[in-house]
Amino acid sequence: MNLAIPDYRQLSPAVAARFERIRQRPVILSIQDLEKKFGTDGATHTAFDNVSLDIHRREFICVIGPSGCGKSTLIRIVAGLDEATGGAVLLDGHAVTGPGPDRGMVFQGYTLFPWLTVRANVMFGLEMRGKDTTTAESEAREWLDMVGLGKFEHAYPHELSGGMKQRVAIARALANEPRILIMDEPFAALDAQTRCQMQSYLLQIWKKVDVTILFITHDLEEAAYLADRIVVMGANPGRVVEFIENPVPRPRSAAQFLTAEYLSLKARLEELIHPPTETGEEDRLPMVKLTNVGDDVE
């Protein structure tokens, strides 16, 4: 079976034109030949190598791959929380050496500061950058209004639902007006319904704010719904398998889930991430037969 994304340049000239325009924009973040090895001398384990990627302004990039492909390590290096063993990460042409407010981060776990109210959480970064309290307060309120949580400014994080917490975390990261927003499986811990809602919120926010997004996920549909470009990584060792320009036109909606673009994209992603085994069979557990009970079931 040979699945391929239909040539969207013919399917949808508008989409092709959009990618052409994106390529004209300045590069915000440049990952060059990045490599990460763990361990010392003898027994080294390569998390990934040969990863290169240019992210353009206001682009929405999703990195997808099976567990163990090093995608989390990759963005921890971009965020400055980890160090690469080779290559470089350039933000606006300057090498990244440590964590900083120019790269906002939203984590998978809830990392709001539990001792601060929702508003004080959003104010945290503003205060770190030396803004006075009054300015920080009014700016924080604006960001909370934007994620639709203005009413909850005095609540404590433990009083919010998981989805609300992540919206505050997004507001907190965006309040610093970062060049790029890094999101590490931010919705993975949410239930399916909330996750869909959050994806739609994120697109709305992205539309309103001048920000570039680097988004890690292991959910194919999430990547297909959100991304401009999808970076597909493979494991053992971690590497980039393919760059896919997402053919699904914007604005995105649930109505697109049955379009040819969406389905062919999804099929291609499936093929890359869950490649068929050599025998053509799916992975089977070596099972011992215990009873005949299931024999008449297919």
């Binding site: 929380l81 407010p101 906002g104 984590f107 776990g109 945290f124 970064g125 770190m128």
Partner: peptide
């Protein structure tokens, strides 16, 4: 440690 990392990415 995630709280510390979050604060670092916020400029602390």
């Amino acid at each position: 440690p995630a709280l510390i990392e979050a604060a670092q990415t916020l400029g602390a």
